[in-house]
Simulated scan of single mutants.
Amino acid sequence: MSTANPLSQLRDAIKAQLAGVNIIPDPSRDITITFRVSHAEKLRLESRCEGILQSDYIRARLFDYALPRRKTVMPVANREVRYHLKQIAANINQQSLDINQAVKQGLQPLNKDVKAYSQKLKAVEVLIKELRKQLDLTTLSSDSQDDAK
C-alpha cells in the first residue's frame, strides 16, 4: 500500500496519460463541436478574437498551439489610396524601363533632359514607396492602439 498523497498520484497518472498523447494540428477538420456560453463570455471571446477566427483562437488556447497573428484591417480609403499609388509606381517603373531600353538601343540620346527626367521619376517612385509605408504604419499603429484599449 502506497503512502503517497492521492491527489499527487492522480496528478501523476493524468500527466503520464497525457504524455502519450501528442496533439498534432490536422488540416482535415471534419468534426464540429458546439457549446453554450453566456452573453458576457461571448463578448469576452469576441474581444480577444478580434482579427482572428474564433475557432483558431479556441484551438490555440486549448491545445497550446501558437496564437495566430491578427489580421490587420486597413481602412477602405487607405486601401484605395495604396492601390492607386501602386498603379502609379508601376507606370513610373515602366517609363523608366522604356527610357533605359531606348537609350541602350540608340533610339533616344542620353542627354541632360533625359537624365533629369529619369532622376525625377526615381524621386517620385521613392516618395510613393514612402507614402505606402506610412499608410501601412498608420494601419498598424491604429491596430496597436485598439489592442491597448
Score class of each variant (00 low, 15 high):
residue 36 R to A: 13
residue 79 R to K: 02
residue 62 L to Y: 08
residue 60 A to F: 00
residue 146 D to T: 12
residue 33 I to P: 02
residue 49 C to F: 06
residue 39 H to Q: 13
residue 47 S to E: 14
residue 88 I to P: 00
residue 2 S to M: 02
residue 112 K to A: 07
residue 74 M to D: 01
residue 147 D to A: 15
residue 32 T to F: 01
residue 59 R to D: 09
residue 81 V to N: 01
residue 6 P to I: 06
residue 16 A to L: 12
residue 54 Q to I: 15
residue 122 K to F: 06
residue 120 K to V: 02
residue 5 N to W: 06
residue 65 Y to L: 04
residue 103 V to T: 06
residue 112 K to R: 06
residue 16 A to H: 11
residue 141 S to F: 08
residue 122 K to W: 04
residue 30 D to F: 09
residue 79 R to H: 07
residue 83 Y to F: 14
residue 16 A to T: 14
residue 54 Q to H: 04
residue 25 P to N: 00
residue 4 A to Q: 10
residue 21 V to D: 03
residue 36 R to E: 11
residue 116 A to F: 00
residue 82 R to F: 14
residue 33 I to M: 08
residue 132 R to G: 00
residue 139 T to R: 03
residue 53 L to F: 08
residue 102 A to K: 13
residue 126 V to K: 15
residue 68 P to Q: 08
residue 57 Y to K: 08
residue 115 K to D: 07
residue 136 D to H: 11
residue 59 R to I: 03
residue 30 D to H: 14
residue 59 R to E: 12
residue 147 D to S: 06
residue 2 S to V: 05
residue 62 L to W: 10
residue 103 V to F: 03
residue 37 V to G: 09
residue 69 R to D: 13
residue 75 P to C: 11
residue 2 S to F: 09
residue 135 L to R: 00
residue 95 Q to V: 13
residue 137 L to H: 04
residue 115 K to A: 13
residue 135 L to C: 05
residue 25 P to W: 03
residue 99 I to V: 15
residue 131 L to P: 03
residue 44 R to Q: 11
residue 11 R to A: 12
residue 127 L to G: 01
residue 108 Q to E: 11
residue 28 S to E: 14
residue 44 R to S: 12
residue 33 I to V: 15
residue 39 H to C: 08
residue 31 I to D: 09
residue 54 Q to A: 10
residue 80 E to N: 12
residue 66 A to L: 07
residue 94 Q to W: 05
residue 100 N to D: 08
residue 147 D to T: 10
residue 117 Y to K: 02
residue 11 R to L: 11
residue 51 G to S: 07
residue 3 T to F: 10
residue 68 P to H: 10
residue 54 Q to F: 06
residue 54 Q to E: 13
residue 57 Y to P: 01
residue 58 I to N: 04
residue 2 S to T: 10
residue 87 Q to H: 01
residue 114 V to S: 00
residue 45 L to C: 10
residue 137 L to G: 05
residue 128 I to D: 07
residue 61 R to Q: 15
residue 83 Y to V: 07
residue 67 L to S: 10
residue 17 Q to C: 05
residue 119 Q to D: 14
residue 13 A to Q: 01
residue 8 S to Y: 04
residue 149 K to V: 00
residue 2 S to I: 04
residue 91 N to F: 00
residue 42 K to L: 13
residue 127 L to T: 01
residue 88 I to V: 15
residue 55 S to G: 04
residue 36 R to Y: 00
residue 6 P to K: 14
residue 118 S to W: 07
residue 25 P to G: 03
residue 20 G to A: 09
residue 142 S to N: 03
residue 92 I to L: 12
residue 58 I to L: 15
residue 64 D to R: 13
residue 113 D to W: 02
residue 142 S to Q: 10
residue 4 A to M: 02
residue 43 L to K: 14
residue 134 Q to F: 01
residue 36 R to Q: 12
residue 88 I to S: 06
